[in-house]
């Protein structure tokens, strides 16, 4: 059974005039077919307004399809009785770290999800401890979230999600509001979780550097999937990526420009190290 499956998913926002009457619709997602296997790390790339965040909300049943179907762990998100199971199996981390922390103490915030699920008190404590250890925030358990840095807050938010024991984590631009250090911190945490816990990760972002480690990259534009494949395959199509207004990693771009000028470099160079390696091989 696949972790997430969408079938001809369409979602339309209603356009309203000043009085609140519907004057038209805005198609945010247009016939998306997507399948994610358990344990995969899938990155969804796209420029602003490409529908990637709307797609994320579909996976957590915050929005339900206008047409088509979404299955999360085999459950149809359109059935109202499935909503809580869907939200438990696909945890979601949002962009703004301040607006998703509910508790006034770190450990209470991590306990919020399990509390909602009706987990017994003793078990909540073990889960909270476990989750905080997994994201490396255990020494901050008694701190106020207001005094943490952006990256730390985001790690607390991730702990809050994994305390619910989801099979899949959807991260909706988790690094967009962070500084470079915070960004690295969060990505490292996600990477570790994926390796150690074998959870399925869906990372939505517009930073191409972040998707290098993904099993599969999906590029979205205007509500549909326009490119799909391994990071190497995707990144070798520099011209196309530029067309979708995505910034190609510097190393990849340099390799591409060199290739155009006739330097014999392999396709799909993703990191600076790889580029250096390839350039040294030339002599």
């Amino acid at each position: 059974m696949s972790m997430i499956k969408t079938d001809k998913l369409i979602y339309e926002y209603a356009k309203l005039d000043d009085e609140g009457n519907v004057i038209g619709t805005n198609r945010a997602i247009d016939a998306v077919d997507l399948e994610v296997e358990p344990g995969q790390f899938v990155a969804i790339l796209g420029h602003n307004g490409s529908g990637k965040s709307t797609l994320a909300k579909q996976l957590n049943a915050i929005l339900t399809p206008t047409e088509g179907t979404v299955w999360v762990a085999g459950r149809n998100t359109k059935e109202p009785e499935n909503i809580w199971d869907v939200r438990q199996s696909a945890g979601m981390v949002f962009q703004n770290p301040d607006n998703q922390i509910i508790g006034t103490v770190v450990e209470e915030d991590v306990g919020f999800g399990p509390e909602n699920l009706g987990v017994p008190t003793d078990e909540i404590w073990t889960r909270v401890e476990e989750s905080l250890k997994k994201v490396g925030m255990i020494e901050y358990r008694h701190h106020s979230p207001n005094k943490l840095s952006g990256g730390q807050k985001q790690r607390v938010a991730i702990a809050g999600v994994i305390a619910m024991r989801p099979q899949c984590i959807v991260l909706d631009e988790p690094t967009a509001m962070l500084d470079p250090n915070g960004r690295k911190e969060v990505l490292r945490t996600v990477e570790e979780l994926r390796k150690k816990e074998k959870v399925t990760v869906i990372l939505i972002t517009h930073y191409m550097e972040e998707v290098v480690g993904a099993d599969r990259v999906i590029v979205m534009d205007k509500g549909s999937i326009v490119m799909e494949g391994s990071p190497k395959r995707i990144f070798s199509r520099v011209e196309e990526l530029k067309k979708y207004r995505l910034d190609v990693p510097q190393a990849t771009l340099l390799a591409y420009e060199l290739q155009k000028k006739g330097v014999k470099l392999p396709d799909g160079i993703l990191s600076t190290e790889e580029l250096v390696e390839a350039l040294c091989q030339l002599n």
């Binding site: 438990q88 509910i102 306990g111 399990p114 909602n116």
Partner: peptide
């Protein structure tokens, strides 16, 4: 945003909720 984050973490009012620190 907060309401959405709470819903995403399965918040559905006080019924059936347990307490971390009873």
């Amino acid at each position: 945003d907060l309401a959405m984050a709470m819903e995403a973490r399965c918040y559905r009012g006080g019924d059936g909720r347990t307490k971390m620190k009873p």
